[in-house]
């Protein structure tokens, strides 16, 4: 199934529940009308939280840059000895 259909199906299901709530008035209508706004706000919060969380714990590796520089020096030395032209960049 195309992924967009899954997302549309979820949206349709949510709308159906919402319309049912509006029709049956199990909760006061004024509350029900606000539910979609809550949903959007909740989604936004989820997104912001995930991005913020990811940023806070973004894995970095400054030591790898140093190790790489050492590898580069080692490689250049070896290859120059073997006659590979390592002159200019």
């Amino acid at each position: 199934m195309k992924h967009i259909f899954k997302i549309v199906a979820i949206l349709v299901a949510i709308s159906a529940i919402w319309v049912a709530l509006l029709e049956t008035s199990t909760v006061p209508r004024s509350y029900t009308w606000l539910l979609p706004i809550y949903l959007v706000v909740a989604l936004g919060c989820y997104g912001l939280f995930m991005v913020g969380f990811g940023l806070m714990f973004f894995p970095t590796c400054p030591q790898e840059a140093i190790l790489l520089q050492q590898d580069i020096v080692e490689a250049k030395e070896f290859l120059a000895k073997k006659g590979v032209d390592m002159g200019s960049e």
């Binding site: 992924h3 997302i7 997104g47 995930m50 991005v51 990811g54 940023l55 973004f58 894995p59 970095t60 590796c61 400054p62 790898e64 840059a65």
Partner: peptide
């Protein structure tokens, strides 16, 4: 790159932010 023992070096905050945003979007939708 985005798990324990993985990682990125040489990205500024903007680049990290874009990367995280793009990742959250893709993981949620796709």
């Amino acid at each position: 790159r985005y798990v324990k023992n993985g990682g990125v070096h040489g990205w500024n905050l903007m680049r990290k932010l874009t990367s995280r945003g793009a990742n959250v979007l893709a993981q949620t939708l796709l």
